[in-house]
Design a protein around this nucleic acid. Structure first.
Lengths: 139, 139
DNA sequence: ACCAATCGCTTGGCATGCCAAGCATACCCA
DNA sequence: TGGGTATGCTTGGCATGCCAAGCGATTGGT
């Protein structure tokens, strides 16, 4: 950080703050102190504090153990981290991915469910007005 | 590095190698050289090389731009990275919440799809034949 | 035979992740 | 009033992420 003074907004990187805030809220909802979460995740409490305030971008390992300890599906955390949705077409594919990865389904069931899902989407597309369909690339 | 000698097997961390290998395969399938991928991702080619060989654990930012450039949905990469291993409960929630959040579905469709999904899960629970559930646990 | 281009890889180093130790505050109970 | 314990935060430094520069091997055109 080159910010020697001025307790300004971080303004450096938004996603970090969003992610941190989200984590903090989740932790508080679970009635956990930083040290308690620290014990569960094997991550030091100061670092957790910094992550929650958006001062650091946690590594994958850290992010996963946090998600794990807070009982938040990792995908949701990644979404918050700006990984998955955002500028992507993945919003559309999220459901498909989830179904594909679902271990509670047999292969035929998976296939059937995907079929139903796609038919719904297709139906809506044909009778739809202006749907926001951002098919695009990222810089 | 606590490995003072032995330039041999990495044997240090498996998931890293798995992830790296997966990325390398994807890149080669797309017929891209390291430098080409480097240009697309804005990540240096040496570092990509190291990641692919499992010498480093890439940050979220890096992982995302790789997934992006290779046209691989980020979730799949995370799966490979051992992040989203299916703790049954979370897998369940992932699918349901994905469906619930899917904006391409109308409310009745959402409801119907959830119904179908739940009935499948229920069916499997009573059927209970071959269980191939990879119950992953980590240190 | 040579040079040019391209491949993947190694190396040195700056930037950042992450932690151990310690500080300040607030709440309790004797 | 003073000590015990809980909270979140700051700081110094080791470990790791990540990159610019450069190297040896391979291919192909002249």
């Amino acid at each position: 950080m080159q910010n020697t003074e001025e307790p300004e907004t971080v303004e450096d990187d938004d996603p970090r703050r969003m992610l941190g805030g989200f984590i903090r809220v989740q932790r508080q909802m679970a009635n956990l102190s930083l040290r308690q979460l620290s014990a569960m995740t094997e991550i030091s409490n100061p670092y957790l504090s910094q992550v929650e305030r958006g001062l650091h971008e946690p590594s994958i390992r850290v992010l996963k153990s946090i998600a794990d300890a807070l009982n938040v599906s990792a995908e949701i955390l990644f979404e918050q981290a700006g990984l998955i949705s955002g500028t992507e077409k993945l919003g559309d594919e999220a459901t498909e991915s989830a179904i594909r990865a679902d271990q509670r389904l047999t292969d035929p069931q998976r296939h059937a469910l995907l079929g139903v899902y796609r038919s719904y989407v297709e139906t809506n597309r044909s009778g739809e007005t202006t749907r926001k369909k951002t098919t695009r690339k990222e810089a």
